[in-house]
Design a protein around this nucleic acid. Structure first.
Length: 538
RNA sequence: GCGCUCGUAGCUCAGCUGGAUAGAGCACUGGUUUGCGGUACCAGAGGUCACAGGUUCGACUCCUGUCGGGCGCACCA
């Protein structure tokens, strides 16, 4: 809709035109301040320019009215245009708000270490990534969701040690001394028991076998992680294991040197990457004195592999505490001979939960973690997805669980679901057939209905905007507003038994379509009825 | 100390590449149809957009500085 208007104006004015939503609904559907920018070149008052522009439109299929107001140019779409668009949407529901973008995108997200279940911080990145993924798919992009499994390095060793310590204390009944850092949590119990079946109890007292134990256990942890993600409706297309990458290190290093002979150098018996020359704060060690590659080396190989697989665009979603890591990876990408502008790293900020007014901070290593699965159990996957998708991902977020357990309008996910369910109820109450409803024409609507229809048809613009700006919260914001329009309309306007019944039901079908598609893009299934159960928790 | 980031209503947050009177939800106060789910709707109150400069027709938005919060500054991932 907006695209149509936008291209029409581009044609007419010979330039891109800023289209915005008028401050006041009564001004029309779209507005542009173009007269202000023309004022300087034309040396005329914007008010006069706007008047001239407006009168130059004449009869038009798309607009019913083009009006100059204080230098702004306000457009009102014609009823015919809206009616036809709505009909098309209802008849092609699967294609509603879709586009045919073609680019291949690789989206890497979550990538949490396979050393324990996901915590609430991971959930935010997961929801953000998956929402972007769904938006991109809908827009036609050929996008791949990938999980990078850090199954090498110290944290894997620590996993083996942690299981053994857990088993020795809790299963073998030994007194054990815990080191400074180790993993803890219920999940260790299952892993320890599994290990007994697989290896026998002896393994817990044989430090030389802890590595073996860990490599076995990380698969079990990945099962827990993917299951938790599945409960959130999040699925990955591909998994890449860090441990599989290092064998490629020599080749990748040579590749960087080929691009720039100074990319890699030796100093103090270590191998360094000259990342400072590419905008990093310092050069970084990639291979230690003892020959073990650093984490960065793995990431360099990984990014090389990504680029060799050949996508048009690469997106990473990282925890915001890793933001300092971005320059060195970009530097490596440049040394590999690729354009680091094709790699975009988005950040997912900290989450703090409130419960009983007490904020608690989470730290994966330090025990007191809030498990994602616990929160899903408490407020449900839909509410969790909604709250995380609702806030800009790169700013810290604090929220209170209580708000999302309520079954009334103070809970936004409930409010939107209720709007959808209301429409279904009303449809089931009507005696009109689907054909009768569909054949009604959406013209001569009163103002409220007109606004509601316009709002409902705005979804395509929102989807495009939410993805291209990577600001997924625009989608839930829109759905909240649309649900509010619906509730207001429902309250104000009687539908069943009126002369306009068919017409208004058709309008509601459009609203329901937008709500349903919008929710599905957030990984949430629209409900057709609301259960009358009151909050059982309290 | 350096870098990144944030500072908008009592609280949680929007505010699109600068544009019309700075918005929403929660909380608060007061109302609502002898009708489709009142699990809803309406209204009221609530703001020095952290502060100070600058850029311009126009700044919450861009620039500089100050203050305050968060994060990062590994041969850990």
């Amino acid at each position: 809709m907006k695209q149509r208007v936008s291209s029409l104006l581009r044609e007419k004015f010979g330039r891109d035109v800023i289209l915005e939503k008028p401050k006041d609904r009564s001004f029309g559907h779209f507005a542009t301040p173009i007269a202000f920018s023309l004022a300087k070149e034309l040396r005329k008052s914007p008010i006069i320019i706007a008047e001239e522009l407006a009168s130059s439109f004449g009869d038009n299929e798309v607009f019913s009215c083009v009006e100059p107001v204080k230098g702004y140019l306000n457009f009102r779409l014609s009823e015919n245009f809206l009616n036809e668009y709505a009909l098309w949407a209802l008849e092609n529901q699967k294609d509603f708000a879709k586009q045919e973008k073609k680019e291949k995108i690789l989206l890497e997200f979550v990538s949490a270490n396979p050393t324990g279940p996901l915590h609430i911080g991971h959930a935010r990145g997961a929801v953000y990534g998956d929402t972007l993924y769904r938006l991109a798919k809908h827009l036609g992009f050929d996008i791949t969701a990938e999980y990078y499994v850090n199954d090498a390095g110290n944290q894997i060793d620590l996993l083996g040690l942690s299981i053994a310590l857990y088993a020795r204390e809790n299963i073998l009944g030994e007194n054990v001394e815990y080191p400074e850092s180790y993993y803890r949590g219920e999940y260790l119990e299952g892993l320890a028991n599994g290990a007994i079946e697989n290896f026998g109890k002896e393994i817990f007292n044989d430090e030389s076998r802890y590595k073996e134990l860990a490599l076995w256990a990380k698969d079990g942890v990945m099962e827990i992680i993917t299951k938790d993600l599945g409960n959130l409706n999040i699925f990955f297309d591909t998994f890449v294991n860090e441990s599989s990458l290092y064998k490629d290190w020599d080749r990748v290093m040579a590749k960087m040197v080929k691009t720039d002979k100074n990319a890699i150098y030796s100093k103090d018996d270590k191998i360094w990457i000259a990342s400072e020359a590419k905008g990093d704060d310092n050069d970084r060690v990639v291979v230690r004195e003892d020959g073990r590659p650093t984490y960065l080396a793995g990431d360099i190989v990984y990014h090389n592999q990504k680029f060799e697989r050949g996508y048009d665009y690469y997106i990473n979603i990282w925890g915001a505490d890793h933001h300092g890591y971005i320059p060195r990876v970009n530097a490596a990408v440049e040394y590999l001979g690729y354009d680091s502008n094709k790699l975009e790293t988005l950040l997912s900020q900290m989450v703090s939960l409130l419960k009983d007014g007490e904020p608690y901070k989470m730290s994966k290593r330090a025990g007191n973690v809030i498990l994602m699965s616990d929160i899903v159990d408490e407020i449900g996957a839909d509410a969790l997805r909604f709250i995380f998708a609702s806030k800009k991902s790169d700013t810290a977020l604090e929220f209170d669980l209580a708000e999302f357990k309520k079954q009334d309008s103070s809970n936004p996910i409930f409010y939107i679901q209720y709007a959808h369910a209301r429409i279904q109820t009303i449809l089931s109450k009507s005696e009109l057939t689907h054909e009768e409803i569909m054949s009604a024409s959406l013209i001569n609507l009163d103002e409220d209905a007109d606004i509601l229809m316009f709002d409902a048809l705005l979804l395509p613009e929102i989807v495009e905007d939410a993805f291209s700006s990577r600001q997924v919260q625009k989608l839930p914001d829109y759905l909240k507003a649309l649900a509010a329009s619906l509730h207001k309309f429902y309250y104000d306007c009687r539908i069943i038994g009126t002369d306009n019944e068919a017409k208004l039901l058709k309008l509601l079908l459009v609203v329901a379509l937008s709500l349903r598609v919008g929710l599905s893009l957030m990984g949430i299934t629209a409900k057709n009825y609301m259960s009358k159960e009151v909050d059982k928790e309290s």
